[in-house]
Amino acid sequence: MDGTRTSLDIEEYSDTEVQKNQVLTLEEWQDKWVNGKTAFHQEQGHQLLKKHLDTFLKGKSGLRVFFPLCGKAVEMKWFADRGHSVVGVEISELGIQEFFTEQNLSYSEEPITEIPGTKVFKSSSGNISLYCCSIFDLPRTNIGKFDMIWDRGALVAINPGDRKCYADTMFSLLGKKFQYLLCVLSYDPTKHPGPPFYVPHAEIERLFGKICNIRCLEKVDAFEERHKSWGIDCLFEKLYLLTEK
């Protein structure tokens, strides 16, 4: 054995408090879109979701699917093309516009009456609605409950000090017999300040354990050449399924 860690023996890093005071403002996230600093976007979609999607959907149609901090995630069109209703929230209007443009979807925009100064973008087909606002303002819009949440790049982007508020927001959107698919990253948080932030299993239990059954479905090596600039040499991604207790 050469000592290389595999996707099945990932350790939890003990120094989980080192990132707790890290803060990125909404304006800084918007600047990332304006300046093209969106390496977190996956042009081909998320491979773990693609692998498990049909198993999760079980042939159902007409589900309501929520994408927190959606950006221009191509997976939104995957669900819409399968007959589901997609709702996303994203602070960057540019990111939302790029989604519709890159997916060749016509759309309209209208003000969100409950949140002055914000807009919702709706596909002409009517099954994709993307709200351009802070996720913490979203419950004011009465958008209803969801059958499924796809959380990739959301919890790991939320400032650590806001995670409890974020989890409570997610709980307010969950319908009966929900499936909450959650991706988190595992790396040494003493070497990279984030975002994306390190979210250990214990944190998921703390945030969601009282209401959800929590199961880790898969762990994969997600390290890429660009991650060397973070000062790390190891990065794993974990896919969790959260269901109603």
Score class of each variant (00 low, 15 high):
Pro189Phe: 07
Val18Lys: 02
Gln103Asn: 15
Glu93Gln: 14
Val34Asn: 04
Lys37Ser: 11
Lys37Gly: 13
Glu225Ser: 11
Glu90Trp: 09
Leu155Val: 05
Glu90Gly: 06
Gly231Thr: 03
Thr6Arg: 06
Asp151Ile: 00
Pro111His: 15
Glu17Pro: 06
Tyr187Asn: 15
Leu94Gly: 09
Glu237Thr: 00
Ser85Ile: 12
Glu75His: 07
Leu48Ser: 08
Trp230Tyr: 05
Phe100Leu: 06
Glu244Ser: 12
Lys72Met: 02
Ile211Asp: 15
Asp168Ser: 15
Phe171Ser: 06
Cys133Asp: 00
Glu110Ser: 15
Glu205Leu: 14
Tyr131Glu: 00
Glu11Ser: 10
Pro200Cys: 14
Leu49Trp: 06
Gly36Ala: 13
Lys72Val: 02
Val65Lys: 00
Glu205Met: 05
Leu155Ser: 00
Arg206Thr: 12
Arg5His: 14
Ser14Arg: 15
Lys228Gln: 15
Ser106Asn: 04
Val184Gly: 05
Trp33Pro: 03
Leu181Arg: 01
Ser7Gly: 14
Asp147Trp: 01
Leu94Asn: 14
Pro116Leu: 11
Lys228Asn: 04
Ser14Val: 08
Pro195Cys: 00
Ile211Cys: 14
Thr118Gln: 02
His41Met: 11
Met76Val: 02
Asp221Pro: 10
Phe40Pro: 06
Arg206Trp: 07
Glu90Ala: 05
Glu218Asp: 03
Phe121Cys: 14
Cys132Arg: 12
Cys234Leu: 13
Gly83Gln: 03
Trp33Gly: 06
Lys119Val: 04
Asn127Gly: 06
Thr25Trp: 05
Cys133Ala: 12
Ser92Ala: 03
Gly161Leu: 09
Leu235Arg: 02
Gly153Leu: 13
Lys219Val: 14
Ile214Val: 10
Phe236Cys: 04
Leu8Thr: 08
Lys177His: 07
Thr101Arg: 12
Ile158Arg: 01
Ser92Arg: 03
His201Gln: 15
Gly59Gln: 12
Phe121Lys: 02
Tyr240Met: 08
Arg82Glu: 10
Glu12Trp: 10
Leu26Ala: 07
Gln30Leu: 09
Arg226Leu: 14
Leu217Pro: 01
Asp221Lys: 07
Ala154Asn: 01
Leu63Asp: 02
Gly59Arg: 08
Asp2Cys: 15
Ser7Gln: 14
Lys164Trp: 13
Asn159Trp: 04
Asp15Leu: 12
Glu43Pro: 14
Ile143Gln: 04
Glu225Gln: 15
Pro189Glu: 06
Pro160Trp: 06
Ile91Val: 14
Phe40Glu: 10
Gly194Thr: 11
Glu12Gln: 13
Val89Arg: 01
Asp221Trp: 14
Ser85Leu: 10
Glu93Thr: 07
Ala202Leu: 04
Glu225Phe: 13
Lys77Tyr: 02
Lys50Gly: 07
Tyr131His: 09
Val18Thr: 10
Ala157Trp: 06
Asp2Gly: 10
Asn213Ser: 12
Leu207Pro: 02
Met148Arg: 02
Lys32Phe: 13
Ile135Gly: 00
Glu114Cys: 12
Ile214Asp: 00
Val65Thr: 02
Glu205His: 15
Thr16Cys: 01
Trp33Thr: 04
Asp15Asn: 07
Gln103Glu: 03
Val86Lys: 01
Ala222Cys: 14
His84Gly: 01
Lys60Cys: 13
Thr190Phe: 15
Arg152Gly: 07
Gln42Ala: 09
Phe208Val: 06
Ser186Tyr: 13
Leu182Arg: 00
Cys70Pro: 08
Asp151Phe: 02
Asp162Lys: 05
Lys50Asp: 09
Cys212Leu: 08
Thr118Arg: 13
Trp230Gln: 02
Phe146Leu: 04
Phe100Trp: 08
Thr169Ser: 13
Phe66Pro: 00
Lys176Arg: 10
Gly194Trp: 03
Phe99Arg: 01
Gly45Ser: 05
Ser229Tyr: 15
Gly209Pro: 06
Ser108Pro: 00
Gly175Gln: 13
Asn104Trp: 04
Phe66Tyr: 01
Glu90Met: 07
Leu105Ser: 05
Leu185Cys: 07
Asp221Ser: 09
Thr4Ile: 04
Ile10Lys: 14
Glu75Trp: 04
Pro195Leu: 01
Gln103Tyr: 11
Ile143Glu: 04
Leu24Trp: 08
Val65Ser: 00
Leu130Pro: 01
Glu17Arg: 10
Asn35Lys: 06
Asp15Ser: 13
Glu12Val: 06
Phe40Gln: 03
Ile211Glu: 03
Leu8Ala: 15
Arg163His: 06
Arg82Gly: 07
Leu239His: 01
Glu218Ile: 04
Pro139His: 10
Trp29Glu: 08
Pro160Arg: 04
Phe171Ala: 13
Leu173Met: 13
Lys32Leu: 10
Thr141Phe: 12
Leu94Ala: 07
Cys70Met: 08
Val74Ala: 05
Tyr180Trp: 09
Lys245Ala: 10
Glu109Thr: 10
Arg140Tyr: 13
Leu217Ile: 09
Gln47Asp: 08
Glu244His: 06
Phe136Leu: 09
Leu105Trp: 05
Lys50Cys: 13
Glu11His: 12
Thr16Arg: 11
Glu225Trp: 07
Leu94Pro: 05
Gly144Glu: 08
Asp137Trp: 02
Gly144Arg: 06
Glu218Asn: 08
Gly126Glu: 07
Phe40Asn: 06
Glu224Gln: 02
Leu182Ser: 01
Glu109Leu: 04
Cys133His: 01
Leu53Cys: 06
Ala80Asn: 14
Asp137Val: 06
Arg206Cys: 04
Ile115Gly: 09
Leu138Val: 14
Val23His: 10
Leu207Ser: 02
Gln44Ala: 14
Gln103Ser: 10
Val86Ile: 09
His227Asp: 03
Val34Glu: 07
Glu28Cys: 14
Pro68Glu: 00
Arg5Val: 14
Ser14Trp: 07
Gly59Asp: 12
Ile211Leu: 08
Val74Cys: 08
Gln44Cys: 13
Ile211Pro: 08
Asn35Asp: 10
Asp151Val: 00
Trp78Ser: 06
Gly71Lys: 03
Glu90Pro: 03
Phe197Asn: 02
Asp151Cys: 00
Ser124Tyr: 11
Gln42Ile: 15
Tyr107Cys: 09
Phe67Ala: 05
Asp15Thr: 13
Glu75Ile: 05
Glu75Arg: 00
Glu102Arg: 05
Thr6Ala: 15
Ser92Lys: 05
Asp188Met: 08
Leu8Glu: 12
Tyr107His: 04
Lys60Asn: 13
Val220Trp: 14
Asn159Cys: 11
Leu182Gln: 00
Trp33Ser: 06
Gln47Phe: 10
Val34Pro: 03
Leu69Asn: 09
Glu244Arg: 08
Val199Trp: 00
Thr190Gln: 11
Glu28Ser: 08
Lys20Gly: 11
Gly231Lys: 09
Arg140Val: 09
His52Trp: 08
Tyr107Gln: 00
Val120Gln: 10
Thr113Gly: 11
Leu155Phe: 07
Val89Thr: 07
Cys183Trp: 05
Tyr187Arg: 04
Phe40Arg: 05
Ser14Ala: 08
Ile204Trp: 00
Met170His: 00
Ile112Trp: 06
Phe178Trp: 14
Pro68Met: 01
Gln30Ser: 10
Gly153Asn: 12
Val184Trp: 00
Arg5Glu: 15
Ser108Cys: 05
Phe236Gly: 07
Ser229Arg: 14
Trp29Gln: 07
Glu109Tyr: 14
Pro139Ala: 11
Phe136Glu: 03
Gly62Asp: 04
Asn21Cys: 13
Gln22Gly: 10
Arg163Lys: 05
Arg64Tyr: 02
Gly161Ala: 12
Phe40Met: 12
Tyr13Ala: 11
Val220Arg: 06
Gly209Cys: 05
Glu27Gly: 10
Ser92Thr: 03
Leu239Asn: 04
Ile214Thr: 05
Lys51Val: 11
Pro139Leu: 11
Cys183Leu: 12
Leu207Gly: 01
Leu48Asp: 06
Trp33Leu: 06
Trp78Ile: 02
Val23Asn: 15
Lys191Tyr: 10
Arg215Phe: 01
Phe66Asp: 00
Leu53Ile: 12
Gly126Tyr: 07
Glu102Gly: 07
Asn21Gln: 15
Leu138Lys: 01
Gly153Arg: 12
Phe208Gly: 01
Lys176Asp: 15
Phe99Ser: 00
Thr243Gln: 10
Asp54Gly: 09
Asp2Gln: 08
Lys72His: 06
Tyr131Arg: 01
Glu27Pro: 06
Asn213Leu: 02
Tyr187Trp: 05
Tyr13Cys: 11
Ala80Gln: 03
Ala157Cys: 08
Met170Val: 12
Gly231Phe: 02
Lys50Pro: 03
Leu63Gln: 14
Val23Phe: 11
Val34Ile: 15
Thr25Asp: 13
Leu26Asn: 10
Arg215Ile: 15
Ser229His: 12
Phe223Asn: 12
Gln22Arg: 14
Ser92Tyr: 06
Lys77His: 09
Asp31Ile: 15
Ile112Phe: 07
Tyr187Pro: 04
Lys50Arg: 08
Lys191Val: 08
Glu237Phe: 15
Phe56Cys: 09
Phe66Gln: 00
Asp151Leu: 00
Thr169Tyr: 14
Glu90Phe: 05
Met170Gly: 01
Phe178Arg: 01
Glu109Cys: 15
Gly62Tyr: 09
Ile10Val: 10
Asp54Glu: 04
Ala157Val: 06
Lys191Asp: 13
Gly71Asn: 04
Thr38Phe: 12
Phe136Asp: 06
Ser186Val: 07
Lys51Thr: 14
Tyr166Leu: 01
Ala222Pro: 10
Pro196Ile: 07
Leu239Trp: 06
Gln44Leu: 07
Arg82Asp: 08
Val86Thr: 03
Pro195Phe: 03
Glu218His: 12
Ala80Ile: 02
Lys60Glu: 03
Phe79Trp: 05
Cys183Thr: 12
Ile135Lys: 01
Tyr180Lys: 00
Glu43Trp: 06
